[in-house]
């Protein structure tokens, strides 16, 4: 099977899993969808769920299921920290689990066994100090991968398009901002894209889709649909299958390429979309010498 075929099959698996779950659609677990950071936001690494920050807010079960695990306090028995608060895991049909982390210690409904959609799971640990707000993850235990929760929950009204702050070509450690420069030397370049999608609370969250086109031909496309780890290595996007550290720079910029730019005029387009379908496109025309 070719690599492309593998990618298509992998992408299909996520779509299938999402379709199975979507048939009984998860509810928003907190605050009517007012999340701070979305799947893929750079939060000390690639955020594999949603992050909510409402102080004292209630977290509710996204769907019917069974409580599998509830850990209260600041750490697990072996010392592993429960960062930001307590954690609850609920198993649902079709081997999907929802994971609720960053809950206020002492607020967790650990007595629950059979969980009904909307049952209170716990309170959000306030942001600040040890608290980082609550996080919500949708995990496909069969495929052993996280699914972007936005795929599984009711859509939100959103008319704000993403923002593209910069696109920069990098060669041999030298950065050339596309907006400022019209001329570059021929060679092999990485493209660093600094873009975000405003979240409902106004934070700089991740987009849902990023495409890079050279002279009108699509060269790269990532869809923020899934993330998983294999052999200790974090991997992103069922279609593109990129290593997290190859894709996400430490400052949160997205890395594409490398692209070999030959002499002549080159038109580079970056298209960034959010989950609601809003799009932002930036096109840069440069001369390669």
């Amino acid at each position: 099977m070719s690599l492309r075929a593998v990618r298509v099959v992998a992408a299909g698996a996520v779509v299938l899993a999402a379709a199975i779950v979507s048939s009984f659609a998860f509810d928003w677990p907190a605050d009517s969808g007012r999340y701070r950071f979305s799947f893929g936001s750079p939060r000390d690494g690639f955020k594999r769920g949603l992050e909510f920050g409402s102080s004292g807010g209630i977290v509710r079960a996204a769907d019917d299921g069974e409580l599998t695990f509830a850990a209260s306090g600041r750490s697990l028995p072996g010392g592993y920290p429960l960062i930001g608060g307590s954690m609850v895991v609920v198993s649902h049909a079709s081997q999907i689990s929802t994971i609720y982390a960053g809950l206020e210690p002492g607020s967790v409904s650990s007595y629950l066994r059979n969980v009904r959609k909307g049952d209170i799971i716990g309170r959000i640990e306030p942001v600040g100090g040890l608290g980082r707000g609550a996080a919500f993850y949708a995990y496909d235990a069969k495929e052993r991968r996280y699914i972007n929760p936005l795929i599984l929950m009711p859509s939100l009204s959103d008319d704000k398009p993403p923002v593209i702050r910069s696109a920069i070509l990098v060669s041999d450690g030298k950065e050339t901002a596309l907006a400022a420069s019209k001329v570059v030397k021929q060679g092999s370049y990485l493209l660093l894209v600094d873009a975000f999608d405003p979240s409902p609370t106004g934070e700089q969250a991740a987009p849902y889709e990023v495409r890079v086109m050279l002279d009108g031909s699509e060269r790269d496309r990532v869809l923020y649909d899934a993330a998983w780890a294999e052999g200790g290595r974090s991997t992103l996007f069922s279609g593109a299958r990129l290593g997290e550290h190859e894709y996400l720079a430490s400052d949160g910029r997205m890395r594409f390429g490398p692209y070999v730019l030959a002499r002549g005029r080159v038109v580079i387009s970056v298209v960034v979309g959010d989950f609601a379908g809003n799009k932002r496109e930036q096109t840069y025309s440069i001369i390669v010498q």
């Binding site: 695990f69 850990a71 697990l76 028995p77 072996g78 010392g79 592993y80 954690m87 895991v89 994971i99 982390a101 993850y137 995990y139 052993r144 991968r145 996280y146 998983w228 780890a229 294999e230 200790g232 290595r233 974090s234 997290e244």
Partner: peptide, 11 residues
């Protein structure tokens, strides 16, 4: 550093 497939419940 090592990334596990999902959250740890024991270590």
């Amino acid at each position: 550093s090592y990334t596990f497939p999902c959250q740890l419940s024991a270590f």
